[in-house]
Write a protein that binds this DNA or RNA. Structure first.
Lengths: 213, 213
DNA sequence: GTAAGTTTCAAACGATTGTTCGAACAATAA
DNA sequence: TTATTGTTCGAACAATCGTTTGAAACTTAC
């Protein structure tokens, strides 16, 4: 009974992830999902209750492990006394994102796009769901950044975190605002390693420049 | 006849801009728009032809002037021989965005959010519409960046432009991925001047760091 | 084997979507 | 005035939406 449930339910989850990323939540109908997943239309409501709940399941399936992976990494570097290095702190976020991007089933890479979209759109379905885990995430990283960049005032720190995380989220999501019409397909090799290789120095340069206030 | 047309049509445009930003394209119904604009339901199809065409009108009304303002600024600094300064080049993009954000009717500030959403979502309605004006924009800025940062290879240049524009678009759009659950309302003062004051140094730090390849 | 419980299925539900239509209205020109 | 053109309006259109239902099909346990 658990085998079959998992079969249909995960097939729905995987197809939904793909379609939600591609077309967005509202533009993705249950009929598109169930058709592509080759399951009955009523299966979504049977297994998940509603379309809203399905979206939350799709999201949380990846989000929860990602957040806790970051916090675990943060624990690890603080335990070994590397918490003063801003590069080390940044890498605690980069590494789990990189792992997601390398997901052989490609679902993880898709999810990062879904995540960045959800954050930008401030999705109504995620507001309270996020506040549960996400607020701890923000709190922990604020402390970590403050410790690694002690010379910065609160204002500076807040702004730079804002820029740094926005940059990293969008980089992993592949949100290239310029690529759409670029002639030379230089960047289009979406190799996650290459992203990190250029992203991390860029972020660190902004984070470590002299304080302004 | 022109007066009345403008009256109804622009009321629709302005309400649509607000609602498209707030709820997204698909989740905004024509009945929401026409109700809030206090016009008849059929007015949208009469004045714009379809919901799709309405979205394109809403978008292009702001996008076209913004792009040409940037290119004009670019012409200006190149004419006065300041084209070698990467800060000057960056400011040719910042200034028109800042002007939009300061729009007293607030419509401009809303639009920057719509723009960033549209770019992230790769809106189907904008793909060919964008390619008309946007490709020149990308081309011109690629040249300008190459000239102002001659020590960078093509790879480096491409990546840094990607990061810089992503950062600037999202900053002006107010896409703060962390703000949602931040305790201290430090950043929430969405003063455009304050954004620029912190954004520009951050971007320049990443752009001007030593080459990697 | 029968019975209980779980999952699938086709069909339909009411609600809402974008769009169309023709009559009513307003404004301009002859 | 009358004729013409542009605009507004209420009503309806077919299509699609998320959801529900009750009966079939299947699995598991006794």
């Amino acid at each position: 009974m658990e085998v079959n449930r998992s079969d249909t339910a995960t097939r729905i989850l995987e197809v939904s992830e793909l379609l939600f990323v591609e077309h967005g939540f509202e533009a993705t109908s249950l009929r598109m999902i169930t058709q592509q997943a080759e399951v009955n239309l009523a299966a979504v409501n049977y297994h998940f209750g509603s379309k809203d709940a399905l979206f939350e399941s799709v999201f949380m399936r990846r989000f929860t492990p990602l957040i806790s992976a970051c916090l675990t990494e943060l624990d690890a570097i603080e335990a070994k006394g590397a918490g003063d290095s801003i590069e080390q702190v940044v890498m605690t976020f980069i590494r789990p994102c990189l792992a997601l991007s390398r997901d052989p089933a490609r679902g993880g890479a898709l999810f990062v796009r879904l995540l960045s979209r959800a954050l930008v759109e401030n999705h109504r379905l995620l507001r309270e769901a996020l506040s549960r885990e996400y607020s701890e995430f923000v709190e922990r990283y604020t402390q970590a950044f403050r410790r690694a960049l002690p010379e910065l005032g609160e204002q500076d720190l807040s702004w730079r975190m804002h820029f740094a995380f926005g940059l990293m989220f969008n980089a992993f999501a592949g949100n290239d605002v310029l690529k759409i019409f670029r002639k030379s397909p230089v960047v289009t090799a979406r190799d996650p390693e290459a992203i990190v290789q250029h992203l991390v120095p860029f972020v660190l340069a902004g984070l470590t420049m002299p304080a302004s206030d």
